[in-house]
Nucleic acid binder design. Structure first.
Lengths: 226, 226
DNA sequence: CAAAACAAAACGATCGTTCGGTTTGTAGTT
DNA sequence: AACTACAAACCGAACGATCGTTTTGTTTTG
């Protein structure tokens, strides 16, 4: 790779970064090529030289996010391939928080795509993701249920509900700027969700006497925090 | 109200309806006043005569959605004021589905606001909504927990998680066009979610023998459906 | 006849894109 | 090491279209 290439790479990277920032924070239609050009230090002509069109820049950003999500080194993918749900629920939450934190703007980009392009840039990706998910967990759950580690619920639905909820929870908090902590800290909210998912909201008859009072007090205290 | 007013009302209503359709399906910045004018049968000048600016139209749409949500005749509000969670979980789901079904485009508008206006048109509304929610449920839950109808989880968090999840579930399905049924029908998916919320994903020790095999078969069958 | 409802042209700005031209880097030749 | 040729990187003006808004006027209504 010669120096000419390196110069080009640095420029396209800068252009993509500023385009990501602009698209995600004001939408695709409301962002102009001149804006991308001036804020990234390139000329408009050079932008077209490298990308060809405005929509191609958007597509490149979606693709970049895609590849980052498929990285097997990603904590979240390690949690998924391990298949230890629901024991490692807290680790799953941390991994999802990490993804949302790292890819805040790319996640907003998906909502931009849904609204301004009817989701055309991400639809096929999402469907393939759901399939991959289903395959990865289907086998490990047969074993888990056989060994009595799971209750009566469909475990595939359970892991989908859990991961989707966590994704939604952190997205609303970090990307939309509307915290959903219900008067608690983020960690407490996640803990409370994990408890609901594991034990349900109804009292568990067998454990009514077994659980110490300290736990009930803890729940009370959480409800009061502001 | 004279005939002049009636003519105006019909025009503004038509303008708002087409503006809603356009804003929600292609975003605010990508929708032009000429587009709204031609598709609603008004002239551009008349549009400005009635609304003053493009953003005022957007604001009016948000306000209209707001008022619809505050209607005490709304099924969802009846469920909320009744405060029978989690017994009426299925009714809550139906009421939320009704709201999402009826206000598909307004819900998309909220995402438009989040992206193109940083949520400035809806933020205060959302916060007041959360407060109202908290007040409405706080008292009824003290009683519910005292009578042993609820388990160890914070009931306020539980009802928030439930309603938010259902809202998210139906929004993704109806507004984004990406069903999250995990290979089941929408009703089955809701049932499964209700089961998770009530009983949790872990086996309930006291009920292991009490539950008939038919139930387990049902769960199995659901998992297989496609 | 005054006021409200409506229409259409016009305004300045900005849009995505194209195009002609310059600079920069590299490989090949002497 | 100097020179040449060429392609890629880069710039900024220009194009036609369209943007939100204003202006000027006409029609409708009480």
């Amino acid at each position: 790779m010669g120096r000419q290439q390196a110069r080009s790479d640095a420029s396209t990277a800068r252009a993509l970064d500023t385009a990501l920032k602009l698209f995600s924070h004001q939408g695709y239609g409301a962002t102009s090529m001149r804006e991308i050009a001036s804020q990234s230090g390139l000329s408009v002509g050079n932008l077209y030289h490298h990308f060809g069109s405005k929509e191609a820049i958007f597509q490149r950003l979606i693709d970049r996010y895609w590849e980052a999500l498929l990285d097997s080194e990603l904590d979240l993918n390690r949690v998924f391939t391990r298949g230890r749900f629901p024991e490692d629920l807290e680790e799953m939450a941390a991994a999802i928080e990490q993804v949302v934190e790292r890819h805040q703007e790319e996640i907003l980009l998906i909502y931009v795509d849904v609204i301004e392009f009817r989701g055309s840039h991400i639809r096929t990706f999402y469907e393939s993701m759901a399939d991959r998910f289903q395959e990865a967990y289907a086998s490990s759950f047969e074993e888990a249920r056989g060994s009595g580690r799971l209750g009566e619920v469909n475990p595939l639905v359970a892991v989908m509900v859990a991961s989707r909820w966590l994704f939604y929870f952190f997205t609303v908090e970090k990307c939309f700027g509307v915290p959903m902590h219900f008067g608690m800290s983020p960690n407490q909210a996640v803990d409370e969700f994990a408890r609901i998912l594991r034990f349900g909201v109804l009292p568990r008859p067998g454990e009514a006497e077994a659980s110490p009072d300290a736990r009930k007090d803890m729940v009370q205290e959480r409800g009061r925090t502001r």
